[in-house]
């Protein structure tokens, strides 16, 4: 058993060296394993993937780059999907994972078969995989730091994401660290909005009667518009709500800005981060040196860039940045 494993590892190492000696990726096949497609962010992510990889296939950079999405957002389903990709002989698998550790077995199998695995957004912890992570902690902290420049202090309402997902824990930890460093702010209520505006609206509407006057709402993206709706429905003054780059949030912000000079900021991850993962996979197949862990910057929209971002975003979409090979190289060398 052990010797078999060792042979496997040896073979993988051989494959890896073989890959490095090749400097051409035109016959390489890269697959996207995606766990969920049911919200606007994921839709934008898939659209970006299709656009950028479509162009890369057309000009012969890679042979093909199909995207596969599991139907039920289940770990078992995605593990089976990855195993299918191994059998189909893809050269690289780009993963947005349903779980940071539960897919490690399947990811390890892929690595052992000599397949390059690049995870992004929902990253995997298996050491053989590459990770393109967002500094969610910093993203949460930035929100409070922005508030400190705008307000003298006050009571905050925190809208969290999906309970049990590490992204939610990270952003929230960042927010709480920011509040600890700016003691003029106090979080008086916290609800889970699941990054969805209708869920956020429901949760905020429920807790509002129990709260004092709120000066600002710290969010995780996708929930800002719902929070605004809940405040309006309760007949309360609209607080400063940090937005999350969604079209409906930016549109609402623009309307408020035009009507009464409302000022806020918006921060989130660009769904185009998937295309960065694609280029990183391509670079690795091309034999380039890429660090195992990369960090991508988040996308911030300010009062001044609001109009441009809104104009560039599709109705129903998310403010986006798509990566080119040059951008990817810049991120790799910078990180």
């Amino acid at each position: 058993m052990l010797s078999k494993l060792l042979i496997g590892v040896g073979a993988a190492a051989l494959c890896a060296t073989a890959t490095i000696s090749l400097a051409d990726t035109s016959d390489k096949r890269i697959a996207l394993s995606n766990n969920y497609a049911g919200n606007s962010w994921r839709q934008a992510m898939l659209a970006s993937w299709e656009k950028v990889t479509g162009a890369a296939v057309a000009d012969g950079t890679v042979a093909e780059a199909p995207a596969f999405t599991t139907a039920e957002n289940q770990v078992t389903e995605q593990a089976a999907q990855i195993q299918n990709m191994i059998l189909e002989g893809y050269d690289a698998i780009v993963i947005n994972a349903a779980s940071p550790d539960a897919l490690n077995g399947a990811v390890k199998q892929a690595c052992d078969a000599g397949i390059v695995v690049v995870s992004f957004d929902g990253i995997v912890t298996e050491p053989c995989a590459y990770r393109i992570a967002v500094d969610f902690h910093a993203m949460g902290k930035v929100e409070v730091e922005y508030l400190a420049t705008r307000l003298d202090g006050g009571d905050l309402l925190e809208i969290r994401g999906l309970a049990g997902v590490f992204v939610d824990d990270e952003i929230s930890a960042g927010i709480h660290e920011g509040v600890a460093e700016n003691p003029q702010f106090k979080i008086v209520g916290s609800v889970h909005g699941d990054w969805a505006q209708d869920v956020a609206q429901k949760a905020v509407a429920g807790i509002l009667p129990s709260l004092p006057e709120i000066s600002a709402v710290v969010t995780q993206g996708g929930d800002g518009y719902g929070a605004a709706q809940a405040f309006a429905a309760a007949g309360r003054p609209t607080p400063l709500i940090v937005m999350g780059n969604r079209y409906d949030e930016m549109l609402w912000w623009k309307e408020q800005k035009d009507a009464n000079g409302y000022e806020t900021m918006s921060v989130s991850i660009a769904p185009g981060v998937g295309t960065l993962a694609f280029w990183v996979a391509q670079m690795i197949l091309d034999g380039k040196e890429v660090p195992q862990d990369l960090t991508v910057p988040f996308l911030t929209i300010t009062q001044d860039t609001l109009e441009d971002s809104l104009a560039a975003t599709q109705p129903g979409g998310v403010a986006n940045v798509e990566y080119s090979l040059e951008d990817a190289m810049a991120v790799v060398s910078g990180g």
Binding site: G38, Q197, D198
Partner: peptide, 16 residues
């Protein structure tokens, strides 16, 4: 009605 109530339809509005 829910779309009217929450300011538009979204893909995951039925989920819960």
């Amino acid at each position: 009605l829910l779309s009217g109530f929450s300011g538009g339809a979204s893909l995951n509005m039925g989920q819960e």
